[in-house]
Design a protein around this nucleic acid. Structure first.
Lengths: 211, 211
DNA sequence: GCCTTTCGCTACAGGTCGTAGCGTAACTCC
DNA sequence: GGAGTTACGCTACGACCTGTAGCGAAAGGC
């Protein structure tokens, strides 16, 4: 999860300072807010964290991996309380996600690391493990809950269920990111309501067609 | 559209070489393919184009603006032939868009410039004018065509029609980008069929509810 | 032919990257 | 308590990239 070469749980020697670890990640987020991605430098982060620049390189191979770790923890805030209906659940999590993307540190960092990951397979895996997969659980939970309520039919074919989960995930996350960062329009309640209605309607139509 | 300070159609003096212009943009795309975004340098592009580095800076203020122009022309390839049904039209344009995102130069450049645009308002406007708005016309055309076929009802409220167009645009473009770049899964025919069915079903359900 | 603008070239200051080497600090095992 | 191991801060460094300045030459319009 954290560092460059996992020290193989070496029990001997001086342990790595956990305070330095958290200070570095916090300094990275602060630097992202102030400077953005392109003007963020390793030396600057080290200075903010009160740490030598070499210490950063001992733990992270480069800027990309450091930023992924610094931003990943923010995505753990996302939750999916039961609000009684599929549409309400979707609207709630979308608004949460939008609020997360409003923060300058996520806004500027997320797209940048994704861009780098197109040419860096290990980085892509790191992003998938630290960020993407943690959001996918929300889709699973929402779908299962809707099935228990009877809003969606129980899926027969597990392959088809998986495919639909993946589709919904890409649609929701993609639409919100595109709206917020590319179109640069607000992800507000009216828009979220439209999106949720579209999804619920589409899922209902698909279920009706499949029955 | 192109350069740093529009020379205000100055009729006097040596004109800018259009050959150099196209050579630079082509060299930029080639460099993106080979090196990716982060390792692309202005000096390298100048060398590939057979042009002095200073010439690049006379026309583009920085790497971001150059790359936007270099990639923008690729998006002009997208077209929307009439395939007889809304779902077929959607599937066709999504597959086109996916093929575009498969190319390494667009894959790596698009997210990078979007990331930079979160802290650079002029760059965002340049992206919007050069890339985003050119895609939105496809949504308008597809929706109008579906209304003429009777697949979708004629919109009463023009505000609501605009909002739905924007929503569909963000959903389609966002989902494809997220699938291709974040989830890193193939945008193939089965997935596209699922997405199109979801959208058509959702639009139909919304129309039925609105009637 | 004169004026204007662009061109290629060279040089440059400023900044960043990522590494190496050193002595010191912290912790474990014997 | 000592030996061994690892992390730390610090400094210095070469390599590279950025963006600009200045020069003489080239290519057009009037």
């Amino acid at each position: 999860m954290c560092s460059r070469t996992n020290p193989r749980s070496s029990r001997t020697g001086r342990p790595r300072s956990t305070e330095a670890h958290t200070a570095i990640l916090e300094a990275t987020r602060a630097a992202l807010v102030e400077l953005g991605w392109s003007k963020l430098t390793m030396g600057d982060v080290a200075g903010r964290a009160g740490v030598a620049k070499t210490t950063l390189y001992r733990r992270w191979a480069n800027k990309n991996e450091l930023v992924v770790d610094a931003v990943a923890v923010l995505f753990d805030e996302l939750e999916l309380p039961d609000l009684g209906s599929l549409q309400a659940d979707i609207e709630h999590v979308v608004l949460q996600f939008a609020a997360l993307l409003e923060r300058p540190e996520t806004k500027t960092a997320l797209m940048a690391v994704v861009a780098e990951s197109t040419r860096d397979e290990p980085l892509r895996e790191r992003i998938r493990a630290s960020i993407v997969d943690r959001q996918k659980r929300l889709v699973l939970a929402g779908r299962e809950r809707a099935q228990q309520r009877g809003e969606l039919p129980a899926g027969r074919d597990p392959m088809a269920v998986d495919a639909t989960d993946d589709l919904i995930f890409d649609v929701i996350a993609g639409a919100v990111v595109h709206r917020a960062l590319v179109s640069a329009e607000p992800v507000d309640a009216p828009w979220v309501a439209r999106l949720s209605a579209l999804l619920v309607g589409g899922l209902g139509a698909a279920a009706a067609a499949g029955a």
